[in-house]
């Protein structure tokens, strides 16, 4: 099945002359789990900002299930079925995990349904189920600011699932987690991938290896290459971007890779 859930064509984002994304094209199949990697400043977060409507593209368009997203605001895009997890865990610290999840789970997100309707019991059951999945049952009714960093990360992933989106955008889910937590997060994402389309942005290569089937490498606002993790790791362009030019190493093995050329010249003379 190769129906596209997300299609991006010739996308350019221009921040006062700085092209955060440059003529980027990308597509994601329904039910796919894709990992996006790339050095700092490659435009990964801007990429998510565009999909979720936080930033509007200068040129090009994003289509989600065939619909152009440009005219919609963030909350409308979220309602269409795109959920986003932020880089640093963003949960509501003064609410309990249960309340956090109930807010995300709410099906009628207008002002008046929220005000007048009590939380229906199917939603309560969903919330209890999620609390169990993310292992927060014992802490379900204390304030979320008392949770550890890892627990907050998981709570946010839980909130994302509670929204029941079709496409999950997950920005660095394992930043600051222990190895064990990282592995459990990977398992969680893989099990979620059975029923959702997921885009994960991550730096931790070991983690990427654990979950990735297809990897996309971003560099300077464009797609550098796409493929399986092994293909990507052996791609000379990727190595060049991450490790510096290969030929430079041949010239002088002792030279630190990131040494700027001009300084070199200065030392030589």
């Amino acid at each position: 099945m190769s129906e596209k859930i997300l299609e991006i064509e010739n996308l350019t984002v221009n921040f006062d002359g700085f092209r955060a994304l440059n003529n980027l094209s990308f597509s994601l199949d329904t039910g796919e789990l894709r990992v996006i990697i790339g050095p700092n400043g490659a435009g990964k977060t801007t990429f998510l900002d565009i999909i979720t409507g936080k930033t509007k593209p200068t040129e090009g368009q994003v289509r989600f299930k065939g619909r152009n997203l440009r005219p919609y605001a963030e909350y409308q895009i979220a309602e269409m079925g795109i959920g986003r997890k932020f880089q640093t865990p963003r949960v509501y610290l003064n609410l309990s995990p249960r309340e956090n999840l109930e807010l995300a789970c709410n099906r009628g997100k207008g002002v008046f349904p929220t005000l007048f309707k009590r939380t229906p019991s199917p939603e309560k059951r969903t919330v209890s189920g999620l609390l169990e999945t993310i292992g927060l049952i014992p802490k379900a009714d204390m304030k979320a600011n008392l949770l550890s960093h890892g627990e907050k990360q998981w709570l946010e992933i839980g909130m994302l699932v509670a929204q029941s989106p079709d496409l999950l955008l997950v920005d660095e889910p394992v930043a600051g987690l222990t190895d064990e937590e990282t592995e459990r997060t990977g398992e969680l994402l893989i099990s979620l991938a059975q029923s959702h389309s997921i885009i994960v942005i991550e730096h931790d290569m070991e983690f990427v290896r654990q979950i990735a089937r297809q990897v996309t490498v971003l560099h300077q606002g464009s797609v550098l290459c796409e493929g399986t993790i092994d293909e990507v790791q052996n791609d000379p362009k990727v190595i060049e971007v991450y490790l510096g030019k290969e030929e430079t190493q041949h010239e002088d093995d002792m030279r630190p890779m990131s040494y700027p050329v001009s300084t070199e010249d200065a030392i030589a003379t």
Binding site: A73, E74, Y75, R84, F86, R90, L103, Q163
Partner: peptide, 26 residues
């Protein structure tokens, strides 16, 4: 109720509220 919790959510992180699918303006 939920309304009150949403008010607190808006106070603490309005952007997050938007990405959860609520329009805070109303």
């Amino acid at each position: 109720g939920r309304f009150g919790r949403l008010l607190v959510a808006i106070r603490d992180d309005e952007t997050r509220v938007r990405f959860t699918g609520y329009n805070p303006t109303g």
